[in-house]
Design a protein around this nucleic acid. Sequence first.
DNA 1: GTCTATAAGGTGATAGAC
DNA 2: GTCTATCACCTTATAGAC
Lengths: 206, 206
Amino acid sequence: MKYNKDTSEKILENAFEEFGENGYNGARMQSIADRAGINKALLHYYYRSKDALFEIVMKKAFQIMVPKLMKTFNSDDSVCESIEKFVEIYIETIMKHPQIPGFVIHEISNKPDRLVRLIKSTEINFNLLKQKIQKEMDEGKLVQMAPEQLIVNVLALCVFPFMAKPLVTGLLLDGDKKAYKKLIEDRKKEVASFIIRSVKIEEPKS
Amino acid sequence: MKYNKDTSEKILENAFEEFGENGYNGARMQSIADRAGINKALLHYYYRSKDALFEIVMKKAFQIMVPKLMKTFNSDDSVCESIEKFVEIYIETIMKHPQIPGFVIHEISNKPDRLVRLIKSTEINFNLLKQKIQKEMDEGKLVQMAPEQLIVNVLALCVFPFMAKPLVTGLLLDGDKKAYKKLIEDRKKEVASFIIRSVKIEEPKS
DNA sequence: GTCTATAAGGTGATAGAC
DNA sequence: GTCTATCACCTTATAGAC
């Protein structure tokens, strides 16, 4: 009767994979059990239901992302410096956990309310960021635009290439997976430059 | 025995909605039948299987998008002018057919190969565009970067706000649906400006 | 804790009457 | 062409032995 302390953790890891690849609807408890080398019954023994398991895995995914990302906002950096850090950390973290975009994609179209609720329950808060952006625009440091538009642009440029990975690889890069990895790697710097060239107003020489 | 000529079309319309909202896995034949005011058996009478129905609806979605978008590429316009047109037409078309992003989202993570194959079977071809971009960069009209990066950026800025509609509305706009519509409407111009500010090199005065 | 066996519910698809 | 009834399958979840 050897007690395998990390069976529960092994389940979580493999559920993370399965849900990330197939979303809630596509994921199969049987498949998670297979991946983890156990059977369905044991799955239900540890985590009551598919729903419960999913919620836990989802929260885990956010715990990976959110704290790192929030650090880039709450600092005293300028908006442009914040964006540089945000982009780099976002891309780096997703490269380490490529399942995460899968979660978000699926949940957006499956149970968006649950997703919004979950994100709201984290320390993410866009209001501070909006204010910071507005301030720099008023000071003439940034091109005038609705702060929401800038935020959407930053998120779009970070998130989209991961969401659309098969399309980017298949349609734009002739299926070349190495080229995809390089493209993403390059974006750590490229995206921030792209944004900053567009919005930053250079200080006039005194 | 009144023959309802457009039963078949009514099915297609409602299948379009159902698949767009729930994706292939989430969609229910029963639900499509209900929406169309008929029953499951009739659904299978017109379209043999869920798979077959989906493929037809998917192709229909692309027939809406692709021709309009390709017109913006194959012209003699400069890259910047092409981008302006592309952005405006993309956003306008999706606003009229808000189910389309749903298709793409779901299929990306469900059967990406089918999606890539389907898009490849259209007249979409990024190679011409890549060359056009490269040429203008060589001529010093555009900031140097990998053409693929620019294309990804354009697509990201167009597509993301629709893919992430619930997140944008819920997290960034306090659930205000009118604000979302305005944000999207504004992006018709905003996105192109944003990109062009970043990549266009002004002609030196002669 | 871990397994096998099975219940309970739902889904795509078809048979057959009208 | 359109319906009702039903099949065959799959999936989550549980009962019960070890």
